[in-house]
Write a protein that binds this DNA or RNA. Structure first.
Length: 312
RNA sequence: GGUCUCGUGGCCGAGUGGCUAGGCAGCGGUCUGCAAAAUCGUCCACAGCGGUUCGACUCCGCUUGAGACCU
C-alpha cells in the first residue's frame, strides 16, 4: 500500500515510559527499534542511563543501544550515519524502523536534512583549544573565534565551549566561516515520518523521575560508576557528562555526600525532562498522548496504534 | 503568668521611610557543528488590623503565631 517507506518515531521525556511503549509499538507493526538516546548507546552504562532490561531487549530487536564504547567520542554526526544505516537495513528486511528516544538533536538528524559531514574533526587541535580554555578561560577562546568568524561568535555563547571550539576548528582548517544554516528545516525525503509523542501530567512525570533515580541507586549506580572509572573513564569523558554520572562522580571525589548527589540527579533529571518537552513541542506534526489520561496501558497503547494506522 | 527576640514570595535569604536584592524550586522559551550540553525570559512578598506620615515592607500600638529566658 504505502509507496513511501515510513519510519515511526516514539519520543518523549525521560521516565515517561518510552521503552515499554516503543516495544509494544514495534511488536504491533513488525518493527525494530532504533534508539535515539545519547547515553543508552554506550556500553557498560546500563543503570545510569536506564537502559532497557535484558528481557526488554529480547522483546523487540534494538539497535544503537550498547553499541559504543564509552571511552570513545561519539556525537550526532556518527549517530546519524549509524541510524540511517539501520533504517535502510530494516526497510530491506521488509520491516518498520521505530526510532525511540528523547535526544532531540538525534531525532532532528533523522527528521530533517542535516549534513554534519562537511568537516572532519581534528582531535589534536581540539585538545589544544581545550587546554587553552582551561588556562585562559572560555572567554579567551571565544575572543579568538570573534576575530576568525564574528558572526559565529555572535551566535555562540562563550560558555558553550564545544561549539566555540568547533567553530574555530572549521574556520582555522578550512579558512572558511561556519556555514550559516538555513532558517527553516527541510524534512528528509528519504522516508515518511510518523511522530508519536508521549507525555504525562507534570507532577506524575516528576514523581516517576524521583522514583526511578532511587531505583537506580538501589540497583547499584554507584558501583557501576566506580567500575567505569576503573576502566579509565573520567569526569571529562563525554559519556560521563550524563545526568546521574557526573553527580555521582563528584560525590566519589568527595565534593558532597550521596544524599546530595541523589538530590542533584533528581533535580537535573527533572530539568532535563522539561527541556526535552520544550524541544519536542516544536514538532508540529507530532501526535501527543498524555499517558496520565488513560486508565490503563492497554487503552493508551491501542489509541496510539490506531493513530499510527490512520497516519500511514 | 512575666520578660525578650522574631515573623519577608513554595523554600532559603538580604534590605531600606518613597527608587519593589539575590539564590533555589516552579513555569515558559532558544537550540543544525557534536545536546543528559549551553543559554534566555518570567510569576510569586513583606503575619493581621489600626495609627503616625505627603508616602510604610521599613516607625508606633494592638492582635496572632514561633522561639528563648524568668517565675
Amino acid at each position: 500500500m504505502q509507496d513511501k517507506k515510513t519510519v515511526l518515531f516514539v519520543a518523549g521525556p525521560t521516565a515517561v515510559g518510552k521503552t515499554k511503549y516503543a516495544i509494544e509499538i514495534a511488536r504491533a507493526f513488525q518493527g525494530e527499534i532504533i534508539s535515539a538516546d545519547s547515553m543508552q548507546i554506550y556500553r557498560y552504562m546500563d543503570i545510569g542511563s536506564a537502559k532497557p532490561s535484558k528481557e526488554e531487549l529480547t522483546q523487540a530487536k534494538h539497535h544503537l543501544v550498547d553499541e559504543i564504547d564509552p571511552r570513545e567520542e561519539f556525537s550526532v554526526a556518527e549517530y546519524q550515519i549509524l541510524a540511517k544505516k539501520y533504517i535502510d537495513q530494516i526497510f530491506q528486511e521488509g520491516k518498520i524502523p521505530v526510532v525511540a528516544g528523547g535526544t532531540g538533536l538525534y531525532l532532528n538528524s533523522l527528521l530533517y536534512e542535516m549534513d554534519f559531514s562537511i568537516m572532519p574533526k581534528q582531535a589534536d587541535f581540539r585538545k589544544q583549544l581545550e587546554q587553552d580554555a582551561e588556562q585562559h578561560g572560555s572567554r579567551h577562546v571565544h575572543d579568538r573565534l570573534k576575530s576568525l568568524d564574528p558572526a559565529a561568535a555572535e551566535r555562540i555563547h562563550p560558555n558553550n565551549l564545544k561549539k566555540v571550539i568547533r567553530a574555530i576548528e572549521v574556520a582555522e582548517t578550512t579558512g572558511e566561516r561556519m556555514r550559516e544554516f538555513r532558517e527553516s528545516f527541510i524534512p528528509t525525503k528519504e522516508y515518511a515520518c510518523v511522530l508519536i509523542g508521549l507525555t504525562r501530567d507534570r507532577e506524575e512525570l516528576y514523581r516517576r523521575i524521583d522514583q526511578r533515580v532511587d531505583q537506580l541507586v538501589k540497583a547499584g549506580l554507584v558501583q557501576e560508576i566506580e567500575s567505569l572509572l576503573k576502566m579509565g573513564l573520567t569526569e571529562n569523558s563525554i559519556s560521563m557528562k550524563g545526568i546521574g554520572y557526573k553527580e555521582i562522580i563528584a560525590h566519589l571525589h568527595g565534593e558532597y555526600d550521596l544524599n546530595e548527589a541523589v538530590r542533584l540527579v533528581k533535580r537535573n533529571t527533572r530539568h532535563y525532562a522539561k527541556r526535552q518537552l520544550t524541544w519536542l513541542r516544536r514538532y508540529a506534526d507530532m501526535s501527543w498522548f498524555n499517558l496520565s489520561e488513560y486508565p490503563t496501558e492497554e487503552n493508551a497503547l491501542s489509541a496510539i496504534i490506531d493513530r499510527i494506522r490512520s497516519k500511514r
